[in-house]
């Protein structure tokens, strides 16, 4: 099967002006070069759901922006659907969808359905196909009640559901999602993850999702690429990552007296259920949370094993 996305030695450097005082800096500013993405290569097959994860500033968004034609690379090559993104921007746009968690493509003051109609026009979706497709997406993403609300009145979670629908109106083959769950509460995150996964499975959409939240990758994707300081440090299936690096769980309980107790368990030695049972029997539990290790810890572990 041909690859739908290919990146070969992709590098992006930014030239940043150093802040300084005085007239000298005004007339002769000094610059420093920051390597955001450093020589990374990978390939993605059609229908794969790939998580591109790493801590803040790792280079995830920069990579996704090069693949979706927003940024020119400093060096290296990339092809998406057989096209060089930055040279075939408009042609490629018909086949890709983009969701940026940090900004909106919806009109702020107008009802959401007007933004969808605009998307239909921009992507030349025929009227009948548009209605059919929107009706399916509205049902799937449960946004019927939001259609007449202006974007400004939506909660972040509601807005994100609408953003994803807007990016799917033209039935893209590849969907780029840049931090789609950023800023959302736990319930909204779970809904968004579930919807993205369901949509990708039903339409065999190839997904490339960036996040610094490991739960996004666990719930949505089947393959993981970990990037840190611009370098690719892990590229394998989710199962491999989970077996090798996600075998720890962080349990935190709050007792009825308000005391907080944290415990780290190795799920290869003790199942989560058993650990929870033990805690519940030992303490008067008022609240409990179970979390994956933070991103920084996984990266540290990957480096440690690489050494």
């Amino acid at each position: 099967m041909h690859n739908i996305i290919e990146a070969c030695n992709l590098t992006k450097k930014f030239r940043l002006k150093k802040t300084g005082k005085g007239l000298k800096n005004l007339f002769k500013p000094q610059y420093k070069t920051v390597v955001a993405v450093n020589n990374i290569s990978f390939a993605i097959k059609p229908g794969e759901r790939v998580a591109f994860i790493g801590p803040n500033g790792a280079g995830k968004s920069t990579t996704i922006k090069m693949l979706s034609s927003i940024l020119y690379p400093t060096s290296g090559e990339a092809r998406v659907l057989g096209m060089i993104p930055w040279s075939n921007r408009r042609r490629l746009a018909y086949d890709i969808g983009t969701v940026f968690g940090q900004r909106s493509q919806l009109w702020y003051h107008l009802p959401v359905q007007d933004s969808f109609a605009l998307m239909g026009k921009i992507y030349n979706v025929p009227e009948i196909a548009f209605k059919k497709r929107l009706s399916r997406l509205v049902r799937l993403f449960e946004i019927r009640d939001l259609l007449n609300s202006p974007t400004r009145s939506l909660s972040l979670g509601q807005r994100m559901r609408c953003e994803i629908v807007a990016s799917l109106i033209h039935n893209p083959k590849v969907l780029f999602l840049d931090e789609p769950t950023i800023g959302l509460d736990i319930t909204a995150k779970a809904i968004i993850r579930n919807l993205i996964r369901q949509q990708a499975l039903e339409e065999e959409t190839t997904l490339l999702l960036t996040s610094h939240d490991t739960d996004d990758m666990e719930k949505v994707c089947d393959r993981v690429i970990v990037i840190n300081k611009g370098k690719l440090i892990f590229d394998d299936s989710l199962t491999t990552l989970c077996d090798s690096y996600l075998n720890k769980k962080y349990l935190e309980i709050t007792t009825e007296s308000g005391e907080k107790i944290r415990k780290v368990i190795d799920t290869r030695q003790i199942p989560v259920k058993k650990a929870l049972d033990e805690l519940v029997q030992t303490y008067h539990v008022a609240d409990l949370t179970v979390e994956n290790p933070p991103m920084e810890e996984i990266i540290k572990e990957i480096y440690n094993r690489g050494d």
Binding site: S69, A93, T98, F100, Q105, Y123
Partner: peptide, 12 residues
């Protein structure tokens, strides 16, 4: 602020 992204990924 990067809003230009939304217009760059448009097919128009």
């Amino acid at each position: 602020n990067g809003t230009l992204d939304s217009y760059i990924v448009s097919p128009r």
